Simulated assay, not measured.
Amino acid sequence: MTAPPVFEAALAEAQAWHAALPEARAFCPWPDDMTWAGRKPHALPATRHITQTPGATTAQSSALLTAIQALIPHADWRHGYTAAQVGQDFLDRFCWCELAGPQGHFHSNQTRLTLAYWGPNLFYPRHHHAAEELYTVVSGEALFHADGTPDATLGPGQTRLHLAQQPHAMTTQDSAVLTCVFWRGGDLAEMPSLSA
């Protein structure tokens, strides 16, 4: 089965983005085991904000943003948390989808590649997971927190590495943030757990 053109275009832009970022290339090779898995579309309230308020981009990141925006009506958008854990306002302005990975639109056992959006003025609580993770910022900016590492405000083209089981969090202020996130090692299908 062949992937729809909108997904092929998004995957091609994600691959170009990976190739353009030295930190991403060093973190993991581009997976060579991807096959089209297909998933049913699932909309969430936050998806409209990816078009309306994605945050600033650069010339390097704008093509990936455009490809992600084209995916919005076709992708399986998820939360992974409950309102009891993070609050309904957070869920209304947060979403992610797995473009590639064990449960992605493209199946891969080598890496997990997710696209995630947080609206302005949100706090993403401390959480952890067994896989190592590299955040890459596509648009907007956010303040990244991680235990044992200084806080850093990152914008388009900048990256943040989180080690296995390293608790980390994020704060957005006036801007939303859209990220392309790579996982390696550990259980790639694991959902993050909120940290104490």
Rank of each mutant, 00 (worst) to 15 (best):
F144N: 06
G186T: 07
Q158I: 03
T171H: 07
A189P: 10
L154W: 04
Q166M: 13
L194Y: 05
V177L: 13
D174S: 07
L178H: 07
M170E: 07
T159P: 01
G186R: 12
D174W: 03
S193K: 14
C180E: 03
E190P: 08
L178Y: 01
G140S: 09
T153P: 07
D151H: 02
S139N: 13
A189N: 14
E141H: 13
G185C: 15
G155T: 08
L154E: 01
G148A: 09
R184E: 15
L188C: 04
T179F: 02
S139T: 13
W183A: 13
P156A: 15
D147E: 15
T179G: 04
G155H: 09
Q158F: 00
Q166F: 07
G148V: 02
A169V: 09
T153D: 05
H168K: 01
P150I: 03
G140R: 00
S139Q: 11
A142L: 11
A164N: 08
Q158N: 05
P150K: 04
L143G: 02
G186N: 09
V177D: 12
A169S: 15
Q166N: 10
G148T: 05
G155F: 10
T171L: 11
D174F: 05
G148E: 00
L163T: 06
H162D: 02
D147I: 08
L161T: 02
A146F: 00
Q158W: 00
Q165F: 07
P150Y: 04
T171R: 13
T172L: 11
R184I: 11
G148R: 09
A142M: 12
T159Q: 05
P192C: 06
P156Y: 14
V177C: 14
R184Q: 15
D147H: 13
D187Y: 11
H168I: 02
P156F: 12
G140A: 10
G185V: 14
